[in-house]
């Protein structure tokens, strides 16, 4: 149990592969292989990706109702390297729907808000989290929050982990970042900009906007900030400088699902397996994992050799 992944708003992911998908039309899926059901939520996905890399993790969070039980049953089948301890509540865990169209290279995602989590459930989770911290070296905090929770929850979780000397990785949307960082900055942050290119309340349009946002996150206490730029590139900032990581390869957009989670897991793996690695090397390994992920089917996480194979396709350019 080397890593704790926290998923406060897990989802049962339902994926449909539909050739030539159009709204306002009836689509019949011909094969069962084109309908997939899997445990999801960013933290859980990181646990799954870590297991592919041979790293033990414990997935914790909040699960609810019948959907929550299905999710747990599916998760427990995946790997002996994943342990679990979820707090169960009555309201149903959400379901997220993805429609993948390989012909038109589109990915349509519909994510539900998730259940309301009452204080006693959150308190119970925090109590368990503190116990599990005694056995973990790193913590991954990622994903959306249930509708009644705010970014301060991530701040409290990060602070509790840092007080015990653990490394904290965070991948969350901008709406949670400010509140979280006011309490505790993580070691590595990767703002989730899939929905909106906004970081610290500022709309990101030009390359300079991305660079400034990454620098600002480092100034706020993060050791490294990684921000996705124009889908296939990343801006990486540390106290030593700012870099652009990109690839000359074309990216298959419909395979992007889970690429961010593969990225996060690979950074954790790199930090874990080579603790003295340069932070830029950690980011580059994460980028290579995301690149490797885009060559695989939806939600299939890359193996170590596939990630290493993609390192040669990564180009790093120093910007500042």
């Amino acid at each position: 149990m080397k890593v704790i992944t926290v998923t406060l708003n897990p989802a049962l992911d339902r994926e449909f592969v539909i050739e030539d998908f159009h709204i306002n039309e009836l689509h019949r899926v011909a094969h069962y292989r084109d309908i997939m059901m899997s445990p999801g939520g960013k933290g859980i996905n990181v646990s799954i990706a870590l297991a592919k890399l041979g790293v033990q993790s414990i997935a914790i969070g909040i699960l609810g109702g019948y959907v929550g039980r299905v999710l747990l049953a599916e998760l427990s089948k995946l790997s002996p390297l994943i342990s679990t301890s979820f707090v169960h509540i009555d309201q149903e865990t959400r379901e997220n729907i993805s429609i993948i169209d390989p012909r038109n290279h589109t990915l349509t995602e519909i994510n539900s808000p998730g259940p309301v989590v009452e204080k006693h459930a959150l308190d119970l989770l925090l109590k368990r989290y503190e116990i599990f911290l005694s056995r973990a070296e790193m913590v991954v905090l990622s994903g959306s929050l249930p509708p009644n929770l705010h970014g301060d929850v991530y701040g409290v979780l990060a602070k509790t982990a840092k007080q015990r000397g653990k490394q904290v990785f965070m991948e969350v949307a901008d709406q949670y970042i400010k509140l979280a960082l006011q309490i505790q900055a993580p070691d590595i942050i990767k703002p989730d900009v899939r929905e909106k290119s906004v970081v610290l309340g500022k709309e990101l349009a030009t390359l300079d906007d991305y660079v400034q946002a990454a620098i600002e996150l480092v100034k706020m206490g993060c050791k490294m900030a990684v921000i996705s730029y124009q889908i296939k590139s990343d801006i990486v900032a540390t106290t030593d400088g700012v870099w652009l990581i990109t690839t000359p390869l074309d990216i298959e957009i419909s395979n992007l699902l889970g690429a961010g989670d593969a990225y996060m897991a690979a950074m954790v793996y790199k930090k874990f397996s080579s603790p003295n690695s340069d932070l830029l090397e950690v980011a580059k390994f994460g980028y290579a994992a995301a690149l490797a992920k885009t060559k695989k089917l939806p939600k299939q996480m890359p193996e170590y050799d596939e990630i290493v194979g993609c390192l040669q396709d990564c180009q790093v350019e120093k910007l500042r």
Partner: peptide, 9 residues
């Protein structure tokens, strides 16, 4: 074994 480590203090 079931890899659920739910426990209480």
């Amino acid at each position: 074994m079931v890899r659920d480590v739910t426990a209480v203090t």
